[in-house]
Design a protein around this nucleic acid. Structure first.
Lengths: 120, 120
DNA sequence: AACGTCCATCGACGTTTGTCAATATTCGGA
DNA sequence: TCCGAATATTGACAAACGTCGATGGACGTT
């Protein structure tokens, strides 16, 4: 009698597993990106960046920032430090005043990274 | 004798205060933006989004995600929930499997918001 | 030299976050 | 109807975070 050949089921097709179609982000890059995003992921810090960006020369001193933010001066300084360490602001002292300035393109760069690195 | 008129010093020029040249972000919008950024500001969640984005049909089930992430299944489910509540992923159950899918344009929209809302 | 102003740092506090083990739930197959 | 597999939820815990008051350091003015 004749035998019928049955196709062997591929292991990949057994369960739900979907194959990847392109490269994924590595844990190191994910850490870097997360660090920058974390620096912005706070309402107070977003407002700080916004006020600096809206100021003459993309620059403002702490005395300009404390009042509209409505938090204590140490807290504002703390947030500014975080934004500096993340590369969004630079600091320059003139007299007793400390001026914080937007790093040109830092925000746009992060914005692009979101689109390009992730959505790919 | 003749009197010389002296110009009155403007109050704004006395100290360091820089005038704003354009609108700043309001506290409510800052809260909204911060909430979305916070959802992405974690290395594990960035990798999850990346893997989903790299998968066939921008879609993957939890069983595809647990192994490459290297964390416990409850932790992965927890992160996926956060990404869903922030509007980056949607969930659809098929059988026992739960498929998470990228929300089209959600990342790009956030990316644009960063550039437009802040940098002005 | 003494004082006042602007800002950074420190220490403390309550809250939020990321993680896990254990358990509950839902669904398909025997 | 019972069992196993995939996923969500709960409870717990340590670490990180946001905030403040108090303090300290640097600078300009008197």
């Amino acid at each position: 009698m004749s035998t019928t050949l049955l196709p062997v089921i591929q292991p990949e097709a057994v369960a739900c597993c979907t194959p990847l179609t392109s490269e994924t982000i590595g844990p190191e890059r994910a850490d870097d990106l997360a660090k920058k995003l974390k620096a912005l992921a706070d309402p107070t810090r977003l407002r700080l960046v916004s006020i600096v960006a809206a100021s003459e020369g993309d620059e403002a001193c702490v005395c300009d920032l404390t009042e509209p933010i409505g938090l204590s001066q140490p807290t504002v300084s703390h947030h500014l430090k975080i934004l500096m360490e993340a590369g969004f602001l630079t600091r320059s002292k003139r007299g007793t005043w400390a001026y914080y300035k937007l790093v040109p393109g830092a925000l746009s760069q992060l914005s692009q990274l979101l689109d390009v690195t992730i959505s790919r």
